[in-house]
Amino acid sequence: MMLYKQKKNQGPKGNRLLISVTVLGSAGPIRFVVNEEELVAAVIDTALKSYAREGRLPVLGSNLNDFLLYCPSAGSDALSPWETIGSQGARNFMLCKKPGTEKMETDGKSAESITTRKSPGNWKAWFNKSLSLKISSH
């Protein structure tokens, strides 16, 4: 009886790919392995979970419907969430927040949370002022 030996980069569902997903505004890409038959929506979900697990900034959230995945070599159109990631023949992707989602988030926040966002600027001004007082006293 002859045993069938699978290639190292082939799983039961097909080839596995190491992909890089660059998040707009983040320091560097996220790299992880996916099956080429995996849907774009699942790749977005995995990228968001990896991004959060690594503690990267800016904080994105976890709703995959708020994001679009682009393939820079395929043009300017976002990938459909229902197509497979291997159909592009690429391994580098760009993850961006949908244009309308940021406006909806700020409209839904209370005035208290918006003023909290401004407080780090006041803290920086206080810190700089306190440093200048200490330096001038020497």
Rank of each mutant, 00 (worst) to 15 (best):
L24E: 14
L24Q: 14
L24K: 12
G25W: 02
G25M: 06
G25K: 01
A27C: 11
I30G: 06
I30Y: 07
I30C: 08
I30W: 02
R31V: 15
F32E: 05
F32S: 08
V33T: 12
V34R: 10
V34G: 10
V34M: 09
V34C: 15
N35W: 03
E36G: 07
E37P: 00
E38W: 09
L39T: 06
L39N: 03
L39C: 00
V40N: 07
A41Y: 01
A42G: 03
A42L: 02
V43D: 07
V43Q: 09
V43Y: 05
T46A: 12
T46M: 04
T46G: 01
T46D: 06
T46F: 03
A47Y: 06
L48D: 13
L48H: 07
L48E: 11
K49N: 12
K49V: 13
S50L: 09
S50D: 14
S50P: 00
S50W: 02
Y51C: 12
Y51L: 11
A52L: 07
A52P: 00
A52R: 09
R53F: 14
R53K: 15
R53I: 09
R53T: 13
R53H: 14
E54T: 03
E54D: 13
G55D: 03
L57P: 00
P58M: 11
P58H: 06
P58Q: 08
V59E: 13
L60H: 02
L60I: 01
G61H: 01
G61E: 06
G61Y: 05
S62Q: 15
S62R: 13
S62I: 05
N63H: 10
N63F: 11
L64W: 10
L64P: 01
F67E: 01
L68A: 13
L69M: 09
L69Y: 02
L69N: 05
L69H: 05
Y70H: 07
P72F: 12
P72V: 14
S73I: 13
S73W: 08
G75W: 11
G75C: 11
S76V: 10
D77V: 14
A78W: 04
A78V: 11
A78M: 09
L79M: 14
L79V: 08
S80N: 13
P81H: 03
P81F: 05
W82P: 00
E83Q: 15
E83R: 14
E83Y: 06
T84L: 03
T84G: 05
T84V: 03
T84F: 08
I85F: 03
Q88T: 15
R91H: 14
R91Y: 12
N92T: 15
N92L: 14
F93M: 08
F93S: 10
M94V: 15
M94C: 12
L95Y: 04
L95A: 11
L95Q: 04
C96T: 06
C96D: 02
K97W: 03
K98N: 00
K98R: 08
K98A: 04
P99Y: 04
P99L: 15
P99A: 07
P99E: 10
G100H: 08
G100P: 00
G100I: 08
G100K: 04
T101K: 03
T101P: 00
T101I: 01
T101R: 01
E102M: 11
K103M: 09
K103V: 07
T106W: 04
T106Q: 10
D107P: 00
G108Y: 01
S113Q: 09
S113V: 12
T115G: 01
T115F: 01
T116K: 15
K118Q: 11
K118L: 14
K118A: 12
S119V: 08
S119G: 00
S119I: 08
